[in-house]
Design a protein around this nucleic acid. Sequence first.
DNA 1: ATGAAAGCGCTAACAG
DNA 2: CTGTTAGCGCTTTCAT
Lengths: 350, 350
Amino acid sequence: MRETTLRDVAELAGVSPRTVSNVVNGYAKVTDATRAKVERAIAELGYRPNVLARNLATGRSGQIVVVVPYLDTPYFAELLQAIIPAARKLGYNVLIDQTDGDREHEGELIGRGSRRFLFDGMIISPLGLAQEDLSVRDPDLPLVVLGERRSDGTFDHVGIDDVAASTEAVSHLIAIGRRRIAAIGDQPYPTGEAAQLRTKGFRAAHEAAGLPVDESLIIGTARFNRIDGATAMAALLDRADPPDAVFCYSDLVASGAIHTILGRGLRVPEDVAIIGYDDIEDGRYSQPTISTIQPDKKGIAQLAVDRLVMRIGSGQPVAGVELKVPHKLIARESTTGQKGGPTAGVHPLP
Amino acid sequence: MRETTLRDVAELAGVSPRTVSNVVNGYAKVTDATRAKVERAIAELGYRPNVLARNLATGRSGQIVVVVPYLDTPYFAELLQAIIPAARKLGYNVLIDQTDGDREHEGELIGRGSRRFLFDGMIISPLGLAQEDLSVRDPDLPLVVLGERRSDGTFDHVGIDDVAASTEAVSHLIAIGRRRIAAIGDQPYPTGEAAQLRTKGFRAAHEAAGLPVDESLIIGTARFNRIDGATAMAALLDRADPPDAVFCYSDLVASGAIHTILGRGLRVPEDVAIIGYDDIEDGRYSQPTISTIQPDKKGIAQLAVDRLVMRIGSGQPVAGVELKVPHKLIARESTTGQKGGPTAGVHPLP
DNA sequence: ATGAAAGCGCTAACAG
DNA sequence: CTGTTAGCGCTTTCAT
């Protein structure tokens, strides 16, 4: 049995396809009488518009793609969890791509290539792409960039103020009396802008407190994973003069660092205080709970989707803007040492 | 400037659209000479086929949708991470939906409703849907179900042998000398089949060892999250006769339980041994590392995608089958107590 | 406010 | 092996 088409509906309702289309899309003005007739016909036939046909006719797919380096990194998973419903609410389906931080893969995506018609816009959290790479792309692709890049004026950028957030994190460590503070996660090369902003905050906090920065306490890592934190922390503890606090560039790094510290029989925060970044759910349940910088993930998701849909809607190129979303310092056991029940230190959920 | 179309290519190459289509899709036999001509024209014009048009013509979207309850649950994130490349390799794009375990939402999806033409098939990990609900659905939708359901013969089901795996987990606790073993995560109601299978394994292990089951040690939880584990564990420790081991129905539950135990100044595994389920990455880094049941996630992803694509390809309905994927018991510190470096107890990655 | 008709760009049945 | 041609089902300009 053939699927019922718009034409079938038109016939049954005794109107033209044009009118049915109008009713379905709520377009032009339609008499209440005809609208009722059409709607009855639709109900009777169980008609559902064929999205594929509509896509071809309109030249739009009604889909946006979200590109992240890793899906199983809690931060990105949590972000996606927020983006999907926000997009759905505006009538867009979400396609997901993961790139493993591969520069070529990311580059191909923003160049659009073979999947050109598959999505109307893109939200990307680049890892492998350097700042300049972002400018070499399909200029017609509506684009919103997440994380630590700067807009070149052709796309929007949504993120938190990383330097300010990092400064707060390190200032917090100083405020609780720590003086030998290490940083884990620096990436002093073109694609490591995220990391560099955090290092900048690390320095700023020292300067504000009138403390010198021990350069040897800034440890670089290729990625922001647990293993990186665990390894870097081991190196720090092997020193003759280990730090009494560490600013980790992600909660995952913090988790790895804590693992190493506890594994050596030392205590957190008594021997070494730890603060992370991202406020992933794990940090609220780890032992000890992890102090962190909490970006407003829902805010990021909502803003990114709103801007992207706006860009798609406006046929014209829109000037790219920098959008800052609020963040918050969440002090938990890994710096304060205060114990509590399973939800101690958890920021109240909305 | 108009996009170049297949017709433009045909013209430039001096052949018919039909031939260009053949070349692009590698369909019928084409002379090497004409193929070369066409390919040159394609390159010259920078032609990219319009997926939207192709979709309409073929009646297929080239997309599959993966439906999970929560994206930010590590187990699902890790599974998705495996599914996406597997699907991409077979030429399918992946749409992702999260349902929050909402029965209605899941029901609407397998009924297909308005997005009927948007995807050619579905992989779903149902949470809110009971076994019977799965049978009430669009019979033309190629479907592969993940997790703990049974096939009703119209769809495929991919999963591990939960009863066997659970039995192994509990037998492991018995093998290390524990006798008062609790279970956290039972769900004795229609949508709790996953949980019930694990409870079945829990009983089976006791029976095999000739141990009685203390029914009061089987704790129900609404979900499999950290907070559920933390709360249930607190109740267990409040008893006059607390358990000396706990089988947790997910690693997240285990993580919450450990949080509670350590928070009370008790030790894992000395005072209470813990084993989880799923082998999420967190478990390899938590303190202590968590013993668990490791399902072959890549195997599940590959099998699910393969079967689904096969179903889509065969126009005819295919008899649904039960597909079992291997699992493995991974003993880590939370049961063995052995310490190690950051990767101790980690199952070697492929 | 509604009808008629021309595509959107591709695929595939039907020749040849 | 290749050309011709008729749609896929919807949107949308142009009339009326």
